[in-house]
Structure formats: C-alpha cells, structure tokens
C-alpha cells in the first residue's frame, strides 16, 4: 500500500511489525543480536533458550523419555502383575493412579506404555518427515515430469484407505514396534511432501536462489543450504503434528487388535480398553489421555520454539 509499510511483500515480517517496518531498517540492526563467532547451531540453540515454553516442553519430553527408557527402574510394579484383590481401585496410597479391571497398577502401565507410544510417535514422525521432505524437495525443485510423477504417487498413497492397509500390513509383518513404525511412516509422509513441494515451488522463483545458481552452486547445495532452511517452519509444524497423530493411530490399531497386543500396554490401547469405564473408573480414561495430551502439547510448543529459533528475523522480538 505504501512504501512505509514495506513489510507487505516481505512475508518474514509479520503483521505486528508493520510499525517496525516504518523505521529505517538499520534500527532493526541495532536491536539484533551481536552473535559474534557463534555457529549457526549455537545461535539457534541460544534463541531456543529464550523461548521459555519450548524449553519447559523440551524438559518434560526428556523426562518422559528417560522414565520410559528406564521403565523397569521407575515403575513401582510390573505392567502385567495382577493384584486380583485390588481391581478398579481409585487413585490413592499403594496404587497412586489406581488399578484397572484386572487389578494392574495404572502408573506402572503408563510408564511402560510410554515406551511404545513415544517410540511410535517420534519414530513415525521422524521417518515420515524425512521421506516427505525428500519427496517434496525433489518434486518442487525439479518440477516437470519428476514433479508430476511424484505427486501422482503421493495422490495414490493418499487415496488408499489407511486402515485397510494398516490391518493387512500389521498381519503380514506382525506387531512389533518397528513394524508399526515402518507401516505408519509409509502412510504419514504425503501431507508433508505436498507442503514442502509447495514452498519449494515458491522458493524456486526467489532471487536468492537465482543468486546461488549464478555463483555456481550445485543443485544439492541450493536445496540443502538455500531452500530447506527457508522451508523449515512448515516442516517442523507438520512433523510435530505427526507425532500426536501417530500415537493416536497406534491406539486405533491396538484397539482393532492389530497393533501392540495386550498385556503389553501403550497409552493408546489403555485408553481404548477403558472406554466403557468412563463413568465407573474415570481415572483409567484420564491418565492415558493426559499423557497423550501432555506429549502432544509439549511437542507442539517445542516445534513452535524451534521454528522461531530457526528464523533469524525473530530476533526482533525481545523476550
């Protein structure tokens, strides 16, 4: 609209900073960090540290991870140990989070269940993230026939009903965690591939990409150094969402009887088993639900923080 409001064509600067754009640009320079001698990753880490919520979330996730890995140390009881006299105890001394219909300690089951749920969530998100990023990058960068081919393959995968394939695959492959991660990954990469392709298509037209080409940068260098870092925001958001989704889908599998089989607990199958007890033993619904919710929230906050940390223009915001 006006030259004062220069940020209009400059997506990195958000709406709030319309006014800041009214300033001569070197003001912003004065507000920027003097990051002398720091490497890219150190700078990212330092910015992340300023994002309190993200750091808290990161702490919680690490804690959950440690507890899950050393489940045998932290769990007060075995996950399959049945205290037949103490079925459906509500939370209290002895069993802090109560017991289930078979008299198993809920807390211990949650701790063991975290092992599988977290492994499935992160495993699927990361591997699907890698596949989606690679497919999307190639399609968006090269365009033309390769783009058409890759996008048709993506559409094909999207059009197959997930559940049908999951059931078939799970019966063929068995129900180990690795199998589930592999099968879920294959069906989780498509949305990301489309998103990455989209941002690559627009980045491809940017002058700085042309500038890199004109100094002789190889295609690989342009993708890795110039385009991926500028597409990192949507990638991170998408990957964090995938964590939550994978944890939940795993529970659907368990529920249908094709995922991790009882008595091995996962947050998903614990939630599923207790669906009829929502009124009589509500804690059996709440606690696994809360665990999933907590993980999902933390992953999302961490994703937010990471996205901001990777964006140098975010230096403007003082926290």
């Amino acid at each position: 609209m006006t030259d004062d409001i220069k940020s209009a064509h400059h997506p990195e600067i958000g709406e709030l900073e319309i006014a800041a754009a009214e300033l001569p640009d070197d003001t912003l320079a004065r507000m920027g960090l003097d990051a002398v001698g720091a490497s890219q990753w150190r700078i990212v880490w330092r910015r992340l540290l300023r994002h309190r919520l993200a750091i808290a979330s990161f702490g919680i996730l690490v804690l959950l991870g440690v507890i899950a890995v050393f489940a045998n140390v932290f769990a007060p009881h075995g996950y399959a140990t049945q205290y037949l006299s103490q079925q459906l105890r509500s939370p209290g001394a002895g069993h802090w989070l109560g017991t289930d219909t078979l008299g198993r300690d809920e807390l211990s089951r949650l701790i063991y269940g975290g092992r599988i749920s977290l492994a499935v969530g992160f495993g699927v998100a990361l591997s699907a993230g890698v596949i989606g990023t690679i497919v999307g990058s190639l399609a968006g960068f090269y365009g033309g026939r390769l783009d058409t081919l890759l996008m048709r393959v993506t559409d094909l995968f999207l059009s197959i009903p997930l559940l049908v394939i999951l059931i078939v695959a799970a019966t063929l492959l068995g129900g180990s965690v690795l199998d589930i991660v592999i099968v879920l990954s294959i069906f989780f990469w498509m949305p990301l591939a489309r998103i990455v392709r989209g941002s690559f298509l627009s980045l491809r037209e940017k002058e700085f990409v042309e500038a890199a080409r004109s100094v002789g940068a190889s295609n690989f260098r342009i993708i890795v150094r110039h385009m991926l870092p500028n597409a990192i925001g949507p990638i991170i958001v998408n990957v964090t969402l995938a964590v939550a989704e994978a944890i939940l889908i795993e529970s659907v599998l368990s529920f249908l009887g094709f995922g991790i089989q009882p008595p091995t607990p996962t947050w998903g199958n614990m939630l599923a088993e207790s669906r009829d007890l929502a009124t009589t033993a509500p804690w059996l619904v709440w606690f696994p639900g809360l665990c999933i919710l907590l993980t999902v929230l933390c992953v999302n906050f961490l994703g937010d923080g990471l996205r901001d940390a990777f964006d140098p223009t975010q230096d403007l915001i003082k926290r």
Partner: peptide
C-alpha cells in the same frame, strides 16, 4: 550478477 530486489536476493537464513 547483481539483482534488483535487495530484500529477495539474499537468503534470509544465512
């Protein structure tokens, strides 16, 4: 080559 738009011709992440 030197480009027209000094906002678009430099990679914001570098």
């Amino acid at each position: 080559i030197i480009f027209q738009d000094p906002f678009a011709s430099l990679n914001p992440r570098m």
